[in-house]
C-alpha cells in the first residue's frame, strides 16, 4: 500500500475510504485513535457541511463529526 492517498476532505459524499496516514501531532493522532479513527480503518463519508464546515463520517459502526481542518490531516484512499 502506498502512502500517497488524498485528503479525507476531498472524498465525495457517500464514498467509502480507507485511512492510509494521519499527519498530525501526537495529541491529534491520539484523540482520533481513541475514537477509532486510525490507520487501516475503513470509513464512510456521511455528510459535508458547506463553506468549509465539518464532515460527518461513519467509523466503527458509529458516526463522528470532525472539523474541516482535521480532515485535511487525514490521508485516505477511496475504495
Amino acid at each position: 500500500m502506498d502512502q500517497q492517498g488524498i485528503f479525507l476532505s476531498n472524498v465525495p459524499n457517500n464514498k467509502r475510504a480507507r485511512i492510509v496516514n494521519i499527519q498530525g501531532g501526537a495529541g491529534l493522532v491520539r484523540k482520533l485513535q481513541v475514537m477509532g479513527i486510525r490507520k487501516g480503518q475503513e470509513i464512510k463519508i456521511v455528510s459535508k457541511q458547506p463553506f468549509r464546515g465539518p464532515l460527518t463520517i461513519e467509523v466503527c459502526g458509529s458516526q463522528m463529526t470532525l472539523g474541516r481542518g482535521m480532515t485535511r490531516k487525514i490521508l485516505v484512499e477511496v475504495i
Binding site: 484523540k31 465539518p54 458509529s62 463522528m64 463529526t65 470532525l66 472539523g67
Partner: peptide, 10 residues
Amino acid sequence: SPEIFLEIPP
C-alpha cells in the same frame, strides 16, 4: 479554539 470533534449517537 479547536475544531468540532463530536460523536453522533443513533
